[in-house]
Design a protein around this nucleic acid. Structure first.
Lengths: 337, 337
DNA sequence: TCTAGCCATGTGCACGGTCACATTGTGATG
DNA sequence: CATCACAATGTGACCGTGCACATGGCTAGA
């Protein structure tokens, strides 16, 4: 019937060309801002494109150029505060550079899940990869796959060209030092899951600082990041009350700890001092407001894109990495003797 | 040099065909599980594909079929607890149905941002859209664009075929009723931003319930969802202490309120009862544990996919929508007279 | 034995762009 | 005035798949 485009297919470059009375190549040139086009011609073609509501077919373009202008993000634990913040910032940074971002949430840490996610991204012909692999397992599995694409890993605290992270050891040391400086000598550490790279780094930082200051440390407790776990761990710890401070590996567990402590009729920070990690937005309004270690997740995301796109200035590149800050609030105080 | 594939291009269906000694179409059949292929042939082709590490070119496939097997998610506020939970569940559900998911985080609520995000998804030839549009503005702007694609909107409390949401009004009524039943008569409502659909619905639910029970209501306070705001609003409210309970439109603001109340030397729930909304995982460990309204965000995400793919059983389709639950914990008690 | 019908496979084109190269016309230069 | 460079445009092939249709062989029924 209509002579425009048949079979429900969207108008193509050739439809535009025919109506505008030019060759398909000229239309392509308009599309790509080629300099050698008469203003008048460009305008006419543009007009037809608007009339037809023409939109270039990305698949066709990707097919011939093998370039997608897309960066893939492989994220595990994407709903946690840190990763979520990084992703958001990263997406914005990428967009500013003219790139698209495709995010895949892994549904597990097993090799299969990772492969599935990776395949999805490779199918999209992504040109680079940002891997948020906070778990050892994901990190290693990913590396084993030896990808030929340029990629950057986030939150993995590994001395490497393309691994970006906030210095967890320093952060943990800061937290621990703060407690020691306040006079605490019996300090527990509620760590994250064993298979999380950053959890291990924080634990390491804690133990190093304790040892450097000649304070005896008990074995850290391995948690699962949830407030729930912090609560039960707190209850357990309170059965033998042989500590005056706890350094929790994240804010949620710290919240659970405080809950347990207070439920036992004790006070934070009078009876027990608590330090968290991450500085989630809620921490400032816990009761008491939580002393914690702040990491700049957004900056991490931005740097990932900069590194990936190679637009990293020497200035930033020369920096030793992101350093976290200790935010002292109300959950820490000197111990009572 | 090598006779395999030239110019760094990945091996194609034809490379596989040549080496396996069949036509490219036969390879295509193996790829698509066509029934009429001799087992032996299939095995041989499969072997070559493995050897070459062949992976089908999605762009080519999309180009010819105009089907992408991809669902687009247009998300605003994707880092908030609700949307994030829905997205994660939705992604999993889609994957189970053999679909991929592409998520775009809007970087603003203006028309331009929405258009950019939408264009990105359309470029990917998505076959359906899930729009997480909790703000009025996003919701309306999106509808104005009258998309020809099938789509579902989430979190928008609108009576419509393709708008899915938890019943906010009921939720707000539940919270309010709980407070009234406890004996409270001076109840404030700390609402969400005016331009959020669900904030308005909750406010509406609050006012309706108050009016139904003949309890006079003061004008709600318009917040911004943050604990920070809740804190300052609390401080402000406490200057004239003319209430015994506050229903906060989300848990974060409730946290801020509790902070302010406690800082003023008062107790929750003895002096003031607080009810939140959402039941974020931390709420159970606030001090006191927060009475709040739980919404099943994950189910919402799953239903979005089911609705979009039309696999929704009549049973579910007939249901009136998701109903939230009141979770009574420690932040509410009868008022002191 | 002939033929219909199905199985297994092959041939050629279409999808919607980009790229390399060809073809004009035009003004500057010697 | 011939030559040349360049601007503006056109032509045809190609990217890697899937689809429609063709082909040949084999089996079963008339």
């Amino acid at each position: 019937m209509a002579d425009e485009s048949r079979a429900g297919r969207a108008p193509s470059i050739r439809d535009v060309a025919r109506i505008a009375g030019v060759s398909h190549q000229t239309v392509s040139r308009v599309l790509n801002d080629h300099p050698s086009i008469r203003v008048e011609t460009r305008a006419r073609v543009q007009q037809v494109m608007d009339d037809l509501q023409y939109r270039p077919n990305r698949a066709a373009r990707v097919l011939v150029t093998s370039r997608s202008q897309t960066i893939g993000v492989l994220a595990s634990a994407a709903s946690m505060y840190g990763p979520a913040s990084s992703i958001q910032a990263l997406e914005q940074a990428a967009r500013a550079e003219g790139y698209f971002v495709n995010t895949v949430n892994l549904d597990g840490t097993d090799r299969d899940s990772i492969e599935r996610g990776l395949n999805h991204l490779l199918d999209q012909a992504v040109e680079g990869l940002v891997v948020i692999a906070p778990q050892v397992r994901v990190f290693e599995t990913f590396h084993d796959m030896n990808i030929s694409l340029p990629f950057v890993t986030l939150q993995s605290t590994v001395a490497s060209q393309n691994a970006l992270s906030v210095d967890q050891i320093t952060g943990a040391r800061l937290a621990t030092r703060h407690l020691i400086d306040l006079g605490h000598r019996n300090i527990y550490h509620l760590a994250g899951p064993q298979d999380w790279i950053e959890a291990e780094a924080r634990m390491h930082g804690f133990l190093s600082e304790m040892s450097d200051r000649d304070v005896a440390a008990t074995a850290p407790i391995l948690g699962d990041w949830t407030a729930e776990f912090g609560y039960y761990a707190g209850r357990e710890l309170l059965r033998v009350r042989d500590f005056t401070a706890i350094f929790s590996s994240n804010d949620q567990m710290a919240l659970g700890l405080i809950h347990a402590i207070r439920e036992a009729g004790l006070d934070v920070p009078r009876d027990v001092s608590i330090v968290g990690f991450d500085d989630i937005p809620e921490s400032a309004h816990f009761w008491p407001p939580l002393t914690t270690v702040r990491q700049d997740f957004a900056e991490l995301g931005r740097r990932a894109i900069a590194l990936l796109l190679g637009t990293l200035d020497d200035q930033i590149a020369g920096q030793p990495g992101l350093v976290p800050d200790l935010i002292v609030r109300g959950s820490t105080a000197p111990p009572i003797f």
